[in-house]
């Protein structure tokens, strides 16, 4: 039989690769559009509720974007968008909502407790852990400085 190292090299060289230009373009356009929607919502909220401070407007925009991400995941649109856009729809906060809601939908059949609650963070878990850990580190640094 063929030499194993030689075969590995053959596979590495000849396997089909992701179309880089197309992927980057799709991610740029879709990611940009999602951010534009976010900006639009931000402007809308500050126009509707002029009494809100800058921070409050930001928080409400986040809430609306998370809702939209979850909603479009639940009606089965977000995975199609993700298949086209790749990183463009994963990186914004709507992608985070998608990564929490999609396991919740998937494991809903195992019941509320061991299904939805236990499995909800299988994908978003690392992000939350890193968020918390970096929060602690930054907190300690800020305390010392």
């Amino acid at each position: 039989m063929t030499d194993k190292a030689e075969y590995r090299l053959y596979v590495k060289k000849n396997s089909p690769r992701s179309p880089m230009v197309r992927s980057l373009f799709a991610a740029f356009v879709v990611g940009g559009l999602i951010c534009c929607v976010g900006e639009g919502i931000r402007d809308g909220i500050s126009a509707l509720f002029p009494s809100f401070s800058e921070e409050e407007v930001g928080a409400w925009t986040t809430v609306v974007m998370i809702f939209l991400g979850s909603f479009f995941t639940a009606i089965g649109v977000y995975d199609r968008l993700g298949r086209f856009a790749g990183g463009g729809s994963i990186v914004p906060i709507t992608g985070f909502a998608n990564s929490v809601v999609s396991p919740a939908l998937e494991y809903n059949r195992e019941g509320v407790f061991f299904g939805i609650c236990a499995k909800m963070f299988v994908i978003a878990g690392p992000i939350i852990v890193f968020g918390v850990v970096s929060g602690i580190v930054v907190g300690i640094v800020a305390c010392l400085v």
Partner: peptide, 17 residues
């Protein structure tokens, strides 16, 4: 998909392989 990969509704991209 659920057993080997990701939840169905997750918006990830499949690789060409």
């Amino acid at each position: 998909e659920r057993q080997y990969r990701y939840p169905l509704e997750l918006g990830n991209q499949r690789t060409p392989t």
